[in-house]
Structure formats: C-alpha cells, structure tokens
C-alpha cells in the first residue's frame, strides 16, 4: 500500500505526456483515499448504531424468534414441550373463540378510531390560535394522557357502577338512566362506555399531535386562499387537510395499532363480559397463555395478530403516502 502511493504521485507528474495509462492510474489513489474515508465513516456509523442494533436484537428480534419457535410447539407454561409444526396455526383458523375476539377487536377499532380522531381534531382546531386561555385548555385536555391506563380504567369502572359510582348517580338524578340498569351488563352500552373512557384518556394525545401538524402549516397559504375567496370550509377542506396529511398518517396509524392491541380497558372494565362478548384479540391471547397455560398456542395467536397489525399499518401508510403525490 505504502509503496504504491509514491508511484501514483509520480505518474501524476507525467500526465501531460502519456494519455491512456495515467487515466487509469490517476483514478486509483483518490478512490483509495475515499474508500478509507468511507470505511472509517461506516465503521463509526456501525459503532454508533451498535447499541440500538443490540437493543433491537435482544429485546425485539430474539423474543420474536422465540415466539415463533414457541408457536411451533405444544408448550405448556410448565413442563416439557413437543414439536407440532404448524398445528397451532391450523387450530387458530378454526378457533371460534379467537375469531369472535378478532371480529370484536375490529369492531372496536372501527368505532373508536373515528371518535378519537374527530374529537382530537376538533379540540386541536379549538386550541390552535393563541387566544386567551388556549394554553390552559391544551393542558386540561392533555391531562388524562399522563394517568396510567389501568388506573384510569379502574376510575371509570367505579364511576359508572350502578348504586356506587358518582357518574351513574349524576345520570340517575338527571333522569337519564333507570336506577335499575347496569351499563356494563349490555354489550352495546358497555362498549359505548369503554369508548367514552378511552376517548377521555387518549384524545389529548391526538389533539397534541394534530396541533403540531396544524401549526407547521404556514399561515400565508391559508391567507392566500382566503384572499382568493375561499370560505372557512373550503380552506379547511382544500388547504388544511391536505397539508396535514403526514400528521394524519401518524395519528391514524398510532390509533389503529393501539386499538387493535386493546386489552386493559376491557380486562378491567368489562371483564370481557357481558357473556364474553367484549373479549379482544390480546385478551384472548392472555387467556390462552396464562389462564389455560398453553403458551405455544398463545404464541401462534400472537404471531397471527402481529402479521395483521403489520399489514394494516403498512396499508395505511401506503394509502396516505401515495395520495401525497396527486
């Protein structure tokens, strides 16, 4: 290596005389220098990425591999496990309990996503302009987000309890509900109540994300639209919404992924009832794994859910990204 460098330098002096060989030679040394530079950069880059890669390997890839391996076994919580290939997967496709849980999860997602989004967007538009009190309201709406989800679920469980809960009591006194009813005893009202509590808990987060998106839209664009004679609705529909698209993608992917993984709220507030009609996919995985102690089958269900989740998220991102170019 060191012996070639002076040789390269020597040919450079002869450039004017001969044409063909020097070109080939001249190209070499800088390439070498660039390579070492790039090499060093790559090494540093790899070094800096190493902790993250290690973390992902240890906390994501290895567990993922293990989960998949477990899903191919009959794996009891304790004791020996036996290899059964894809039997757990074929079982999953004919498992009525899991199918019901999955359908319910989709239904819940379909209900809760627009509710969260519309309220979040509404709140974001309300607190958008730096009016007096806007900051206070931002904080107020955001406050439930910092409460633990389980804690908030227990809070709502208690508040809506017939005969005990203050919220129920208020409704009863206002004559809005019969004192003998029980909101958790009917599938529709239980789902409605859970959605309400989830909205209270998460709408602040969506508001904050959408607010950040709204504030990144230059005021000039909207002013220009207004000067061109656009009304409020038109400017919202044709200016704000399209420019908000990247944020919308983020918010919707978050919201849908979170809803597909719903567990705490139903585990705590409805116990999966009435009549096991509010059991979500994750709830069912929990039951299979830790109530019936069938870890292998639970792992198979987890893998299936992960595939669905990845597909749905990819589809959403694709849809929202493609429409950016039109």
């Amino acid at each position: 290596m060191t012996s070639q460098l002076p040789a390269g330098g020597a040919t450079q002096g002869a450039t004017g005389a001969t044409v063909t060989p020097p070109v080939a030679r001249r190209a070499r040394p800088p390439q070498r220098r660039r390579l070492t530079l790039r090499g060093r950069r790559q090494a540093i880059g790899a070094l800096m990425a190493a902790p993250a890669v290690a973390m992902i390997t240890v906390f994501f890839l290895v567990p993922l591999g293990l989960t998949f391996y477990m899903s191919l076994n009959q794996w009891s919580l304790l004791g020996a496990h036996t290899w059964i290939g894809f039997d757990n997967y074929t079982r999953a496709f004919s498992d009525a309990n899991f199918r019901d849980a999955f359908v319910f999860t989709l239904e819940y997602t379909a209900v809760v996503t627009p509710v969260l989004f519309l309220i979040g967007l509404g709140l974001a538009l309300l607190v958008r302009r730096p009016r007096r009190g806007a900051r206070v309201f931002q904080s107020v709406y955001f406050m439930p987000v910092v409460i633990g989800f389980a804690a908030s679920s227990f809070l709502w469980l208690y508040m809506g309890q017939p005969g005990l809960g203050p919220l129920f009591d208020v409704f009863r006194r206002l004559g809005l509900t019969n004192p003998d009813t029980n909101w958790f005893a009917d599938r529709q009202s239980a789902l409605f109540y859970v959605v309400l509590s989830v909205a209270w808990k998460f709408v602040g987060m969506q508001m904050l994300l959408l607010l950040a998106g709204l504030q990144s839209i230059p005021v000039e664009v909207e002013e220009a639209a207004r000067i061109d004679g656009a009304g409020r609705w038109q400017s919202f529909r044709y200016i704000t919404l399209p420019l908000l698209r990247p944020t919308l993608a983020l918010v919707l992917v978050f919201s849908v992924a979170g809803s597909l993984l719903a567990f705490d709220q139903f585990f705590i507030m409805t116990n999966g009832g009435p009549n096991n009609s509010t059991i979500t996919a994750v709830y069912q995985i929990y039951r299979v794994s830790f109530v019936q102690f069938q870890l292998g089958y639970g792992a198979a269900l987890s893998v299936l859910l992960m595939i669905v989740l990845a597909a749905v998220s990819a589809l959403q991102l694709l849809l929202l990204r493609n429409s950016d170019h039109d």
Binding site: L157, P162, G163, A190, T270, N271, G273, P274
Partner: peptide, 12 residues
C-alpha cells in the same frame, strides 16, 4: 340483588 352484581368481576 343490587343491579351491580350482574357485572361484578369481584371488586365490588
């Protein structure tokens, strides 16, 4: 029975 019994998961 009070109406809450129908859905009491044990905490009430």
């Amino acid at each position: 029975m009070p109406p809450g019994v129908k859905t009491d998961g044990g905490s009430l």
